[in-house]
Simulated scan of single mutants.
Amino acid sequence: MKKRLIATIPFMLAGCSYYNTFVERMQTDTLQYQCDEKPLTIEQSDQKNRVKFVYDNEYLSLTQGLSASGTRYTDGVYVFWSKGDTATVYRKDRIVLNNCQLQNPKH
């Protein structure tokens, strides 16, 4: 009996992990931007405290930081800054995606 219980624990833990990923995806908004350089797809957490996106073949996860105006997310290297329906992406204080315009904004 104990062997069966011990054998099922990894499957139970894996199930929890998949469930948490599923719930996180359900609580995510996907925002589409058109930037001067290329399109940008942002996944924003339901709590609005984190954004995720792919840039330069790298999956980035940025947390919300301080901003005097608009909303700013950073991981210490990249910054996603948005205000209204526009956004800009910086890498080490250099603009890498400029004039990003939100497509089909929700009003």
Rank of each mutant, 00 (worst) to 15 (best):
I95R: 14
T8H: 06
F11R: 08
D75P: 02
V23M: 10
Y78Q: 04
N99L: 08
L60P: 01
Q47M: 13
S61V: 12
K38M: 15
Y73L: 04
I9T: 14
T63I: 11
G65C: 01
R50G: 00
V51F: 02
G76H: 07
K83M: 11
V77G: 00
E37C: 12
F22E: 00
R25N: 14
N57L: 10
M1Q: 09
V96W: 07
D75L: 06
T28I: 05
Q34F: 12
Q34W: 11
Y73V: 03
L62A: 01
L13S: 05
Y73C: 02
T28G: 07
I42H: 01
L5F: 14
N49I: 08
C35S: 12
S67N: 09
A14G: 06
N98I: 05
I6Y: 10
P39A: 06
E37I: 13
F11N: 05
S82E: 13
E24Y: 07
K52L: 00
K3S: 15
Q32C: 06
W81D: 07
L40I: 03
S17Q: 08
A14K: 01
R91T: 04
S69N: 11
A7K: 07
S82T: 11
K92A: 13
T88V: 13
G65Q: 05
G84Q: 05
Q27W: 07
Q101L: 14
N20L: 15
T88W: 02
P10F: 13
V51K: 03
D56R: 07
E43V: 00
V79C: 04
Y90F: 13
Y55V: 01
D93R: 03
C35V: 12
E24Q: 13
D29Q: 08
Q103R: 13
A68W: 02
T8G: 03
I9R: 07
M12Q: 10
N49W: 07
